[in-house]
Amino acid sequence: MSEKHLVCQGALCKCNFGTTPDTLKVKTQSKRYINENQGGKKLMATHMDIGKTFEKNTFGSCTKMNNNPCQVVVTQWSGFYDKITLQDNNGKALLEDSKATCPIGSPDCITIINHGQTAEASAQNVKNADDEVLAELLPFVDIKGRAKKYIPINK
Results as ranks from 00 to 15, higher is better:
Gln9Asp: 14
Ile151Val: 09
Met1Ile: 07
His5Ile: 04
Ser122Val: 15
Leu86Cys: 02
Lys42Trp: 05
Cys13Asp: 04
Val133Lys: 10
Glu3Val: 06
Thr20Ile: 04
Met48Thr: 11
Ala119Gly: 09
Gln29Ser: 14
Glu36Pro: 09
Phe59Ser: 00
Met48Asp: 02
Phe140Val: 14
Asn154Asp: 13
Ala93Val: 12
Leu24Ser: 01
Leu134Ala: 03
Gly40Cys: 13
Lys99Cys: 13
Lys127Ser: 12
Cys13Gly: 01
Pro69Glu: 11
Val141Lys: 02
Ala100Gln: 03
Ser30Val: 14
Thr23Ile: 15
Pro69Ala: 09
Phe80Gln: 05
Pro152Arg: 07
Leu86Asn: 00
Ala123Pro: 06
Lys4Leu: 09
Asp49Gln: 15
Lys56Gln: 10
Lys64Ser: 07
Cys8His: 03
Ser2Cys: 10
Lys148Trp: 09
Asn66His: 10
Leu94Glu: 02
Gly116Thr: 05
Gly116Phe: 05
Ile143Cys: 03
Ala93Gln: 05
Thr101Met: 05
Ala135Phe: 10
Leu86His: 02
Ser98Phe: 02
Leu86Thr: 00
Ile50Phe: 06
Thr118Ser: 08
Tyr81Gly: 02
Gln117His: 03
Phe140Gln: 13
Leu24Glu: 01
Thr53Trp: 03
Ser98His: 01
Ser61Leu: 05
Gly105Phe: 00
Val133Gly: 03
Lys56His: 13
Lys31Ala: 11
Gly60Glu: 01
Pro21Thr: 04
Gly105Glu: 03
Val126Ile: 15
Lys31His: 11
Trp77Ala: 01
Gln9Asn: 14
Ile143Tyr: 02
Gly91Gln: 01
Val126Arg: 10
Asn89Gln: 09
Ser122Asn: 15
Gly116Trp: 01
Glu96Arg: 04
Pro152Leu: 10
Lys52Ile: 10
Asn114Glu: 14
Arg32Ser: 04
Val26Met: 08
Ile110Leu: 02
Ala121Gly: 11
Pro107Ala: 07
Leu12Met: 15
Lys25Tyr: 15
Ile110Gln: 00
Ile50Pro: 02
Ile84Pro: 00
Asn68Trp: 04
Leu86Gly: 00
Lys149Asp: 10
Ser61Ala: 13
Asn125Gln: 10
Ile112Trp: 00
Thr58Ala: 12
Ile84Ser: 03
Thr118Leu: 10
Asp49Val: 14
Ile151Phe: 05
Gln29Pro: 08
Glu55Ile: 14
His47Thr: 11
Leu6Gly: 03
His115Gln: 10
Asp82Gly: 08
Ile153His: 08
Ile34Lys: 09
Ile110Met: 03
Lys83Phe: 02
Gly116Leu: 06
Asp97Asn: 08
Ala100Met: 06
Lys27Tyr: 12
Ile113Asp: 11
Asp97Glu: 13
Met44Asn: 10
His115Met: 03
Gln38Pro: 13
Leu138Pro: 06
Thr53Glu: 06
Pro21Tyr: 00
Gly91Ser: 05
Lys41Arg: 15
Ala121His: 08
Ala45Cys: 12
Cys102Ala: 04
Ser2Tyr: 05
